[in-house]
């Protein structure tokens, strides 16, 4: 498999502050790569460097076999970038926006291709609506339609599903998988764990540094965490009691079930067993999930941005 994205040591500084710090990233062609990390961790900056919107301060690499420092114009022609904030013209209709994008890209048989994109995204009835009047989900569809008009080989999607309802998110991801099946490479940033689990591979970035990458299973396994599902037998303050245990690093409440995770599996079992014997709870071991892994990764990363305004 050839690499659609292959960069090493990618670095970006804004007035002396290192926002993206020596990131290595490889995405194979036709893969969907999930890009995760807390807000302000450098995901958007990395994506902008990949598509030539920001100059690279250090590092090198290729995007679609093209140099990310020198050949940005060629990369722009073959990549589709969907911005985090809606960036089409709100005072133009759906069709006018698509027509403009198609013209700029010099798409052959423009009308047919615009019609095709409208059809594929189910935008048919809304062609004459102003983009500014569309709801979040429809704006997202329009933005995606504009991104794929020129049949890019690489899609860079920056939090495409933020603020979109679950059904629209599901539809969106079905489309992403269709594109990947057609051979398109997709790099998509997200905060949703369920979306991360639909990616072929994920990369986790915290405070500008890449802290984990691989498949979901690899990342969770590499975290070395053990986890358990805990059910309480009434009585308040169970979560606080669990948090107080030295073996418990994270707790997550799911209705009546509390998911706990910690590094020392043996100690975790022992602690929970003690409480179970006191009749406070019952517990069963379960696999650690991606969220456990991320919270653990976050806690282990040093916040080198703290104290500086952004």
């Amino acid at each position: 498999m050839t690499a659609a994205i292959s960069v090493t040591g990618l670095t970006k500084r804004f007035s002396g502050r290192t926002v993206v710090d020596a990131i290595d990233l490889d995405v194979a062609e036709g893969q969907i790569m999930g890009f995760l990390g807390p807000n302000g961790s450098g995901k958007t900056t990395t994506i902008r460097m990949l598509c030539g919107l920001l100059r690279v301060d250090a590092g090198e690499g290729t995007c679609l076999g093209l140099d990310i420092r020198e050949q940005t114009a060629a990369i722009k022609r073959q990549a589709g970038y969907m911005t985090q904030r809606f960036s089409l013209y709100e005072d133009m209709t759906v069709l006018e926006n698509l027509d403009f994008t198609a013209r700029v890209h010099g798409v052959p048989e423009r009308r047919a291709r615009v019609a095709e994109a409208v059809e594929r995204m189910g935008l048919g009835d809304r062609g004459k609506q102003l983009a500014g009047q569309l709801s979040g989900g429809w704006k997202q569809r329009l933005a995606l339609a504009a991104c794929i008009l020129h049949k890019p080989r690489l899609l860079l999607l920056d939090e495409p599903t933020a603020g979109v309802d679950p059904q629209a998110r599901r539809d969106f991801w079905d489309r992403i998988h269709d594109f990947a099946a057609d051979g398109m490479t997709v790099l998509v940033s997200t905060h949703y764990m369920d979306e991360a689990e639909r990616c072929h591979a994920i990369a986790y970035i915290a405070y500008g540094r890449l802290v984990a990458r691989g498949t979901v299973e690899q990342v969770t396994a590499a975290s070395g965490l053990s986890a358990a599902a805990v059910r309480g037998h009434g009585g308040p303050g169970l979560v606080d009691r669990l948090k107080a245990l030295p073996s418990v690093e994270t707790t997550t409440s799911f209705g009546t079930v509390i998911h706990v995770a910690g590094h020392d599996g043996a100690a975790l079992s022992a602690d929970l067993e003690t409480l179970a014997e006191q009749g406070v709870l019952t517990w069963v071991p379960e696999a650690p999930n991606l969220e456990d892994a991320f919270i653990h990764l976050m806690a282990g990363s040093h916040d080198n941005f703290a104290g500086t305004a952004s």
């Binding site: 919107l53 722009k76 022609r77 990549a79 970038y81 960036s87 013209y89 700029v104 890209h105 504009a146």
Partner: peptide, 9 residues
């Protein structure tokens, strides 16, 4: 919209 404009060729 400048961001989308700059991302285009």
């Amino acid at each position: 919209t400048m961001e989308a404009l700059l991302a285009m060729p």
